[in-house]
Simulated scan of single mutants.
Amino acid sequence: MKEEAIKFITEIIKPWEILNQQLAIPLAMTPESNDVTSTANTLAVNIKHLPEFCKGINPNALLAQSKSYQIICDLADTSKHGKLRNQARECILNVSSMFERSKDVKFRFLRNKIIIQHNTFGKIDFMQCALESAVFVASILDIRTDWTPKIFNSSGEFTKEIKLHASRANQITWTGLTLEIVELNEEGEYLNVDINGDVLFTLTSDF
């Protein structure tokens, strides 16, 4: 196996897949500061710099070829440097707990969603953006693997309860959470909706 492929698997595929699994656990996370946003920032840096490390390709030379890669590069630079000269490139990460609402107003946990809040492009799903960027980088470097990434969405039963746990295992402090309620439309897309009914909210906590 080529050195580029080993580095791609080690620094991009494995962290993405581990993050994918972690986000499938119904945990209440402080939106701005937690282990998954820290991992996501590191993954963004890895994706940005892999072409440069492997083939000496300046990331700026690739930006016009992939919007997702451009966004990941903006995230990598913001996470490393904070304020950027071009404020239109700045972005931050937040986490929301995504629940699907059924037609009869019951709910089930889908996943925790890492959201890139970009000054130019608005809200973007980090996992999808990182996936697209990773596939783009693999094509640029001619890296071939059997990786078939798929973002996990839990498929539990719908109930009248929204239940989450705030754990010390993935955050230093817990100050609150963000809920995102979605409904599946006829095209198979999740659209944001209101709760529009009564629901029992249960939060357990290590804090």
Rank of each mutant, 00 (worst) to 15 (best):
P59Q: 13
M29G: 02
I25C: 05
T10E: 14
R101L: 11
R108S: 07
E52Y: 15
F126I: 12
D125R: 00
I72A: 00
P149G: 11
N20Q: 07
I195A: 01
A40N: 01
A5Y: 07
I181W: 06
E90W: 00
T159K: 09
L203N: 01
A130D: 02
E157R: 02
D74Y: 09
V95A: 07
S79G: 07
F126P: 06
N34H: 07
A76S: 15
N20I: 03
K150C: 13
W147R: 07
M98T: 02
L43S: 04
E52K: 15
I13L: 08
N112H: 01
E157G: 14
F53D: 11
L75Y: 01
E4S: 14
E90H: 02
S79P: 09
A130E: 03
S155Y: 10
I124N: 04
F152G: 03
I181A: 00
I72T: 01
E187G: 03
E100R: 00
T10H: 15
K113F: 10
A5F: 11
L62M: 08
E186Q: 06
L179S: 06
F201K: 07
E180I: 14
A40T: 04
S139H: 09
F158M: 04
E3H: 12
D35A: 12
N60H: 13
A169V: 05
L43R: 05
C91H: 01
N86F: 12
A28N: 06
H81N: 13
I140F: 07
A5T: 15
I151L: 06
L203V: 14
D35G: 12
D146M: 12
E100F: 02
T78Q: 02
A44K: 04
K48N: 04
W174R: 02
L131C: 08
E157P: 11
T37E: 01
N196I: 03
F158Q: 02
E11K: 12
I195R: 05
D198Q: 15
T159I: 08
N34L: 05
L75W: 04
E161Y: 07
R108F: 11
L191C: 09
V135P: 10
K113N: 09
T178Q: 10
G56R: 02
E4H: 08
L141A: 09
A44V: 04
L110E: 02
Q87M: 14
T204H: 05
T159H: 10
E90I: 06
N86E: 15
R101Y: 00
F201I: 15
S68H: 09
S33N: 10
L184F: 02
L50A: 02
T120G: 01
K163P: 05
N112C: 06
C129E: 10
I72G: 04
A88N: 15
N94G: 13
L23N: 00
D104V: 12
S167M: 11
H81P: 12
Q117G: 09
D77T: 15
E187F: 03
L191A: 14
D125P: 04
T159N: 07
L177M: 15
Q21H: 06
Q171E: 03
E189Y: 10
V182K: 00
G122H: 04
F109D: 05
S205T: 13
T39V: 14
K103E: 15
D104W: 00
L110I: 13
M127Y: 04
S133I: 10
E90A: 07
E4Q: 13
F152K: 14
P149F: 08
E100P: 03
F126A: 08
E187C: 13
